[in-house]
Every structure is written in C-alpha cells, then in structure tokens.
Design a protein around this nucleic acid. Structure first.
Lengths: 341, 341
DNA sequence: CTGTTAGCGCCTTCAA
DNA sequence: TTGAAGGCGCTAACAG
C-alpha cells in the first residue's frame, strides 16, 4: 500500500491537484483561473473559484516561483532600524510596492559590510525580482554577487560614486557643502561640529567633508569638533554639545551630524537657557518632523527618505531596458529655514 | 538536438548539477556539504567548496524549500512604519532572527484589517516557518487562515484578549488604569486627555478606557478631551494641547495618547511659557528615548517594543510543543518618574 | 561516506 | 477554451 497521502494534521497543504479534482477540471486550468491567464469559460471559472473557496486552497508561491522562474519577492538590505531614516525609506518602498503584489524580504546589517554580504547572499538565494540596498559601499564579494545576479539592483541614499545599476539618493557631500555656504552667508564664522560615529555612518562623514570644504573656500576651518562614540541620538547630541561648550573654544554656530543630534543640542540650550541663534545657532540634517514641532523650528536640510524608497521601487518596476548604463537619480534636498540658525 | 541549456546571459543561474559535475561528485553530496548535513570526507568537502567558489554558485532556496517543505522565511505583518514603535518591534525581531538564518518578509497594513487579510494570505503562500502579526484583532478570514496554517503564530503588542497561538505584549488597558492611579496619587484631579485617531489605534483606545476607569473609581471623570483626527505626531500633540487649553476648561494634568503627542505638548508649554508640572502636568506613553532627553524628562509609561519583537521570535524558534493551548507572554511596562508630572 | 531514485507543487510548452 | 507531458532545482529516503 502506498503511503497515506493525507493524514489528519497534514504536513503539506492543499494543492492545485485537489482543487482540480473537486472542480472537475485539470490542474492547469485551475492555475490559469487563479492567475487570470488565458481565456477561461465563465462557467469553468466559477466552478474553480467555488472549489478554491470550499477547501480553502492557498497557492504555494514557492512551487510557483520554481516553475515559472519569476518570483514576486524583492530583497531589501538596510543598515539599521534604530535610525528613523531607514524605516522611512522602508515605508516608501512598501508604499510603492503596495499594488504590485510584490513582497519585501528585509535584512538589517547594523552598518556592517560583512553582515551585508551575508544577507545579500541569502536574499539572492530566494531569486528575488530585484534587490534594494543602502549605500554604494560594499565588500568585493557583495559587489560581484549583485553584479552577477542578473536582476535589477538599486542602491539607495547615496549618489556620490558609481552605482552597480541604479542609484537613488542625494549627494551628501554637496549637502554638507551647502550647509557651510548657507551658514556663512548668514554671517556665522566660528563653526563647531557635533557628530556621531563615522565608521558606521559614511554619509555623515561625507557631509562633514563637504562642510569643511565650504569653510576652507572661505578661508575658515572648524573651531571645535565633538564626536560621540556611538550611534546618533537626541541624548548623545545633548551631551556632546554640553561637552563642546564646556571647553574654552567659543563658537557661534554648531553644525550637527543630523537632526537627532541637533534636537539634543536644542534641548541642551533650552535647559541651560542659552539663547538659540543669538548666542549659538544650531543646524541639523534630515528635516525630521520633530524639528518642525520644536518651540523654535530647527534649521536643517531636508532629505527625502520616503521618496528615495518609493522611487527606487518605481525604477525597478518600470524596468525600462534591463541594466544598461549605471543610472543615477538625484532626489535632491532643500535647506529648511528654521529659527535656530 | 536538445535545446541549448546554457546560453550566454543565462536566465537560470548556476545549479547544483554544475557544481557536482565540476567537483566530480553527485548533486546530493554537494547539497550535503552546503547544508553541513551528514558526514562528509574532508577531501570531498574541499573539492566541493572549491568548485562552488570557482563558478560562484548561489543556492536556490526556492527549490530547496519546495523539496524539503521547510522554509526559512517568517512572515511579519505590522500596522505602520511611520509610528516609531513598529520599527522598534521589527528591530527586536531582526535581532532575534540574526543567528537563525531566517529572513523576515514584511507587510504593512496601514491599520487596515482588510489589507492585513490580503497580506496574510500572500505571505502564507510563501509557506513561512511562522507568522508574526500585530494585535489580536483580525477579520474572520484572517483568523481562519492563521488558525489553519499549521505554523506558529505570534500576535504582538496586545494581550487583552485570547490569542490564536502565542500573544506577546502588555495590557494596554492596565497601563491606562495605572496611569490614572499614579496621577491621582500624585494629587492631580482635573484631567484632560489629548489623543489621536482611535479607529486606527485600538491600543490607544484601550489605554484611554483604562484611564477613565481609574478616574471613575475615584469618583472623577475627564474634564476635557481633545482628539486629533489623524495619526499621532509631535505636531499634532502640540496643536491639540493648544486647542484644548484654548477652551475655558481648566485642567491640572494632560494625559496624552502616546509620547509623540506628549512631547508636542511639552513643546507647546515651552513655547508659551506654561510652567510644566506646576501649572500643567504632562503624561505620555511608550517611554521613547526622546522623552528622556527633553529639558525636563517626560513622565510616561515605558513599554518594551524591542523586547516584544525579540521575545515573539524566541517563542517561535523554541517551538516547544507545537500549538497547544494559547499562550500569553506579558512583557509588562513600568512607570517612568519624569519631571513633567 | 556517497549515490540513486523519486518527487515537492506548480507552470511552460505543445497539442487538441 | 482545455489538457497532457515534462521539468524548474533541490532534497528525503533509502540503498550501498
């Protein structure tokens, strides 16, 4: 006797074959009905859908993907979920994916390129439709895998070097440079910089470099720098500014590595009754919504995180001409004229 | 002549068979090496790994999953990525998943139960190892699918009703109740409530109900309520408090639906020079890190979002006795004695 | 320690 | 408009 095919508590779910038997048509017909493919008699369709409903059939996309060699998964690899910026990118990705029936498989690197490599490898094993990664910086092996995967690759956030396929983001170096120019125009001369861990956040480093370049063109330099050894946070920004101000150096503006840090700076000033802007100007980066809700709106640069995620997916779904020349999409940024600088 | 099997620009990637041929062993042996399964001669292993490296073989997990009926995907369905709370849960999930080799497929419902149903259906089609969803509230169909999926299901955040399998979270009703008790103990009597859209956020509603119950036990009620018609945000909290205070009603404490809203309330008071705590106390919910960094630390209740995600995954990976009685894991919460109440 | 055989559940191709 | 045959790439089960 052949092994019992369907015991109670079946390990394997209901299959197409069973729907086919119940509705009295062939498997392929059921498949066609479910995928809306090819012409189907109205009557047949009804029978099939009824059967599907009756036995609660759930299609097996694993088998479907294997058979058709087209998955509806995309791989997404981001550095962190603690930094609000990346959930916002993810949000943009999901919003663009919504109607497409494509699902995102998400990996988080914690800013580690080796972890990224591991994640990319295992995500590629799912034969995703496309791959979205953050940044243009990867290990050799990651780069090779992505190049050779034969699918669309979007590198998000950054556009300061050459992408594998598509890059969607903004120039962080330019943003830093423009920060410097803007603040110089407003009359600030004694610049302090308050930042967080650069080894992790390469884009913060690029903004810093841009800022320094702008100052150099004006014959200036940073008067003082305070770096928090760890990820950015409001508390870190608050403490780092306190530390910097505790030193003899007198500055008239503090440029922060991002808004989280800058908001912390604002809090420090509020707590210590330091006149913001009059005695010390504060400038951030990102344009987070909290900055706008502060008692005095934060002066900063708005990046478009949601748009970056959304556009990356759009580009990939449009898929005009698979993989020609590397493409760069500059999402841009804009200066937010707040009340802190 | 049989069809060309491997043209240039191959559509199908490199397969086990090719690795096998190159290394001079059988497919299954290569498979075993790659999965570290069974005993393999050292020599054989080396040959295989060399071949894998040479031709850059990437295993196809789709085929593997189909063949073995065990996937290493888990489905995750959350309401939102805009509310910081859910990225934190996701973060906990990823951290617990890290070493397991399991990947998360993420869906976002935007607080819509019909969308949730659609997402659950399509995630189940990937035959995930387990499924994590937010909340205990689902459509009939979602409930049936999850019950019948034959995999572990964790419902996160909430524990105020009976779960399908495992619930990991806290009692929001109790948190609301304890908020009331705590503030009554501290002498507050004239309570105002500032909230956001309840239709979406059922847990905020539960906290509200708990608060009202506590007040009722003390023979009191809410003096005034202001509800923002939309998702919670700092700006919404700021505006809503302004609106509430603009009315004649005099309150001595404002309870906010969450910390985002409460921080907005603090900002309003700072901007209007309203003495926080002396003239108006402020209380939030969640214990976000920004609350602690404010000039005066926010009084609130700390929920453990990261832990919830992490524990949910742990429970599922441990998988002691598949699906017996519904299990509830109470992650708890604690009152944060800040300086705003 | 290694190989053979036979699918996993679905979809592509070809035929009717 | 429908069906039959075969295979996607891998792995379980059983030999050897």
């Amino acid at each position: 006797m052949s092994p019992v095919k369907h015991r109670r508590g079946r390990k394997h779910g209901i299959t197409l074959a069973e729907v086919a038997k119940l509705s009295g048509v062939s498997e392929i017909t059921v498949s066609r009905v479910l995928r809306d493919k090819g012409a189907i008699a109205d009557d047949t369709r009804k029978k099939v859908l009824l059967a599907v409903d009756q036995i609660g059939y759930v299609p097996n996309r694993v088998a479907g993907t294997l058979a058709s060699a087209t998955s509806n998964l995309i791989g997404v690899v981001i550095p962190s979920l603690s930094n609000i910026v990346f959930p916002e990118v993810l949000n943009g990705i999901h919003s663009a994916l919504e109607a497409s029936g494509i699902q995102a498989v998400v990996g988080v690197t914690e800013y580690d390129l080796t972890t990224e490599e591991r994640l990319v490898r295992s995500l590629l094993a799912w034969k995703p439709h496309a791959m979205l990664v953050a940044g243009l910086d990867h290990t050799e092996a990651t780069h090779r895998m992505l190049l050779g995967a034969g699918i669309r690759i979007a590198e998000m956030m950054d556009i300061d070097s050459t992408p594998i396929d598509i890059a969607v983001g903004m120039s962080h170096r330019n943003a830093g440079f423009d920060t410097g120019v803007h603040l110089l125009e407003r009359g600030y001369r004694r610049f302090g910089y308050v930042g967080h861990d650069w080894r992790a956040d390469r884009r913060a480093r690029q903004r810093y470099d841009g800022l320094v370049a702008a100052l150099r063109e004006a014959g200036l330099g940073l008067v003082d720098v305070e770096l928090h050894d760890g990820p950015s946070s409001t508390m870190a920004g608050r403490h780092a500014l306190a530390t910097l101000l505790g030193r003899a150096s007198s500055i008239d503006v503090a440029v922060f590595s991002n808004d989280d840090m800058a908001v912390g700076g604002v809090f420090h000033c509020l707590a210590e009754a330091i006149a913001i802007k009059d005695r010390l100007a504060i400038f951030g980066f990102n344009g987070l919504s909290i900055g706008a809700a502060l008692p005095m709106p934060l002066s900063t640069i708005r990046s478009h995180r949601f748009e970056i995620g959304k556009t990356a997916v759009r580009m990939i779904l449009d898929d005009k001409g698979s993989r020609g020349e590397p493409t760069i999409v500059d999402i841009g940024y804009e200066i937010v004229f707040g009340a802190t600088a």
